[in-house]
Amino acid sequence: MARGIKDKVAILGMGCSRFGERWESGAEELMVEAYEEALLDAGIDGSQLDAAWFSTHYEEINVGKGGLPLATALRLPNIAVTRVENFCASGSEAFRGAVYAVASGACDIALALGVEKLKDTGYGGLPGSLGGTLNAQWAATGSAPGNFAQLASAYRAKHGVSREDLKRALAHISVKSHANGAKNEKAHLRKPITEEQALNAPMIAEPLGLFDCCGVSDGAAACIVTTPEIAKQLGKERIVTVKALQLSLSNGSEAGHNSWDGSYFHTTLGHGAGHHGGPPALRRGWSHHGRARRVLRCGGHYSLPNRRRPQVLRSPHWGLGDPHAL
């Protein structure tokens, strides 16, 4: 029986870059920016790292494949670097890898770092991707906004919500997120907006307007984890430990079996295998199916603060490898 990892791993240090259209920086510079802040916060230097987990989603317009981009950019001491990718949950995956390595006893100190450099495409919005040799031949056209927008149509139909009411509800989220972003010096979008602005913004994918969709940002975030004991030895006074991690991936039955009504994601309920205990609300917070979170918090990606963030972490961790989700 799984014993869980509760309190076995402590956050030693965290850091993140400034987010935004970072025309002056490539992925390498963004990685270094986040890494240096995390090292400073941790009070260690790179030679003390035992292993690293690296995440990025759009490697094809970014750093390319493998773990080498991280090892090279940070001039790591020839340690193991594992690259992970899992859409918007890529950053969480890097974090999971590092945390599990420490919890298992295989590593004393591990690094998780995610980076996304999106603004070298020449156009606005996220780039498209093909999804493989078979999918390219039949999968429906799509974009991130359009894929999530579909939930709105089914949600409206199921609950009898008018388009106007739904748009207004979404606008509240965006107004709140922009207000938060305005207070955060690292946020991409730092101007508050009004409900009218959100409602009258150009349509991206019906019914999601411009402010209902993610800002496309360049950025990186890093986290250094270790055991509580080592953290104490290194002089950390207020030790923050990981209580649980959760990940849930759809097996595709929603898209292939008529038992789903299209209005919600049941993978957000945290029924994934191998949960580590903890209160249900916490597990929900961690069940990081990127799709679910993005729809439920449309517009919430502009700013770092996140009210659903588990209190065990003091620094932003969402989407380490996917900073636009921050």
Binding site: S143, P145, G146, A149, Q150, A152, S153, I204, A205, G262
Partner: peptide, 8 residues
């Protein structure tokens, strides 16, 4: 479910 996508 459906959407009308102006981005793609």
């Amino acid at each position: 479910t459906w959407s009308a996508d102006y981005l793609t």
